[in-house]
């Protein structure tokens, strides 16, 4: 790989992202870093499995027309993926500054895209606003498929939705309702009648949490 300039773009919990120039094109190399706290054998196993899985899921999502970074290269020995650089901001940091209509529109769109993934047997595995990039043109790119998977299991789809809702409740408390309703509207457009089944599963997953009050919680009125 011909790389002229290398910058550390960010250091996440799991991987380090390098911004590189690749034959004149800006790319991101995601290297899964070794964790000192993990048993070395477990560490190697996890990093390799996730790198391969993420490459597959990115490629498949791209074929489905979901806005994800295009996969360029995979290097198994370095546990690294090289993908297209998406200029924009993390949705987590920019969300609160927009007006209600725009936020609704964004989340309807995100809901649709997640619906397309689910209806094709793919789950993201870590749907939070930290894993979404908002571009200048108003597109939301989904990134970080490292915890995703191939599945037709209602449980996994429900977990995706549950994670989205939980991320909204804990990080965007004031607009969580608005965002989640719009998300479900978009999701319904693709998943149709199946939406009800998935949402029932979400409810079940949440009630399984050890100490969920028996009374229906305020935030559960979507069901």
């Amino acid at each position: 790989m011909e790389s002229i300039k290398v910058n550390v773009l960010s250091k996440g919990a799991e991987a380090i992202l390098l911004l590189k120039l690749w034959y004149g094109m800006l790319v991101v190399e995601k290297i899964r870093i070794s964790k000192r706290y993990r048993n070395p054998h477990l560490d190697v196993m996890l990093r390799r499995a996730r790198t391969i899985l993420e490459a597959r899921l990115l490629h498949e999502a791209k074929l489905l027309g979901i806005p994800v970074p295009a996969l360029i290269d995979i290097d198994i020995r370095r546990n690294s993926l090289t993908m297209e650089y998406i200029p924009g901001k993390r949705l987590r940091d920019s969300l609160e500054r927009f007006d209600k209509d725009f936020i609704e529109c964004l989340f309807r769109n995100i809901g649709e895209n997640v619906g397309i993934l689910h209806s094709n047997g793919i789950v993201h595995g870590d749907l939070t606003t930290s894993n979404m990039i908002l571009t200048e043109t108003g597109n939301v790119y989904l990134i970080d498929f490292g915890l995703g998977g191939h599945t037709w299991d209602l449980e996994d789809m429900g977990t995706d939705i549950h994670l989205m809702l939980r991320a909204l409740e804990s990080t965007h408390t004031d607009i969580a309702d608005l965002c989640f309703k719009a998300f479900i509207n978009g999701y319904k457009k693709i998943m149709k009648d199946k939406t009800g089944e998935v949402l029932r599963k979400v409810k079940e997953i949440r009630s399984r949490g050890r100490y969920v009050a028996v009374e229906v919680r305020k935030s559960w009125r979507y069901y």
């Binding site: 996440g12 919990a13 799991e14 964790k35 706290y37 993990r38 048993n39 477990l42 987590r92 939070t128 930290s130 990080t171």
Partner: peptide
């Protein structure tokens, strides 16, 4: 025992790391 300890603590550590970054 080694596996049970290492797997479960690694899971907790990973989630903690994510929350810390978040």
């Amino acid at each position: 025992c080694l596996s049970v300890i290492e797997y479960s603590y690694a899971m907790l550590a990973e989630v903690t790391e994510r929350a810390l970054a978040h």
